[in-house]
Design a binder for these strands. Sequence first.
DNA 1: TATTGTTATACTCTATAACTATA
DNA 2: TATAGTTATAGAGTATAACAATA
Lengths: 171, 171
Amino acid sequence: MVDDEPKDGAVPVLDSTPPLRSVGFTISATGYAIARTFKEILAPLQLEPREFSLLRAVGAAEGQSQQTIGERLQIPSSRMVAFVDALEARGLLQRRQNPDDRRARALFLTEDGHELLERSFTAAAGHELNLTGELSPEERDQLLALLEKVGNRLGLAGGNSGRGHPALADE
Amino acid sequence: MVDDEPKDGAVPVLDSTPPLRSVGFTISATGYAIARTFKEILAPLQLEPREFSLLRAVGAAEGQSQQTIGERLQIPSSRMVAFVDALEARGLLQRRQNPDDRRARALFLTEDGHELLERSFTAAAGHELNLTGELSPEERDQLLALLEKVGNRLGLAGGNSGRGHPALADE
DNA sequence: TATTGTTATACTCTATAACTATA
DNA sequence: TATAGTTATAGAGTATAACAATA
C-alpha cells in the first residue's frame, strides 16, 4: 500500500524509495468509496448491495436451487437462509418446490422483485454514468485495460464472470 | 455497479444500454482484492491492516494524543482504546503522560514498533511492486490520473492526504 | 461545565455444528 | 450414507452511553 503523502522526518523508512502515490492504495480507497456510494444509492430502494447481488443472481437464472446460487456467490448455506428469508418476507422472491428433488428450493423473483431489480439496475447505471463523467470513451477503455493488468497480478478473472463482488465471500 | 457479463434473456433490463464492463464494479472488485492481498502480506508480521495504519499514524508524528490520532483516522475514541491496548500489550507502542494535560495520553512507538513498521513498509512496497508489475511507468501514471478523475466524482481528495484508508472509518 | 480516555452494555453479524427431511 | 436446507449456539466486532479524572 504505502501512502501517497510521505510524512516529514518521523518515518524515514520508505519515503524516498517508493512512488509518491501508490497504485494499490488508490485503487483500494477509490473502490471503497465507490462501494459506499453505491450503498447509499440503493438505500432509498431499501436494498443492501449484497441483497442486490442476490436478486440479480436469482433473476439471471430463475429456478435454480438456493445452494447453487449460494455457491456461485460464495455465500455459505446457513447465511443464505437469512438472506432469502428477508427477501421472501418482503415479497421480492419466492422459494418453490422442485418436483425432482423435494429437498431443494427453487428460487424465483416475484413481480415486485423483477420491478425492484430493474429499478436497481437503473440506479446502478446512473452511478456508473456519474463515476465516468470525466472520462472520454477512450479513457474509460484505457482505465479498464490498466485495471485488468493489475487484476492479472491478483488472480482476478478478466471479466469476473458469473461471480459477484468478491466482498460477498468475505473471509 | 452493473455487472460486466450480461446474462442471457433472463434479465433484459440493462443488457443493451450500459457498457459491457462497469468501471465502478471493476475498481471496487480490484480494490477489494488488493486489500485482501495486503492483509495476507501483513499476516506474517502479525499485523492487521488497521493496526498498520495506526502504527503508521503514530510513527508519522509521535507524541500526539490518542484522540488526535483517532480523529485523523476517523476512529471513535472507544475503539481506539482496544486498538492501542493491543499494540501496547505487544510492546509496539507506548502511552506516556502529557505533562501539559494529564488527561491526555501521548503515543510513541517503541523500538520494536519502529522496526515492525519498517518491515511493514517494505512488505507494502513489495506488494505495490507486484501489483504494478505489468505496467510501464507511463501506464502507472495514466492509471493514477484516470483514477483521480473517478475519485473527483466521489469527493475524494486528490492525495487522500493525512487520512488513512476510508475503510477504517466504516459507517 | 467541558474534555480525555475508559468501561459496560447491548446489538449485529458470522461461523460452526447439530438437526430434519429427503435422496 | 449423503445431501439441501434449517436452526441453535457461541463468538467477534461495534456503537452507545455512562463513568472517572482532569481541565
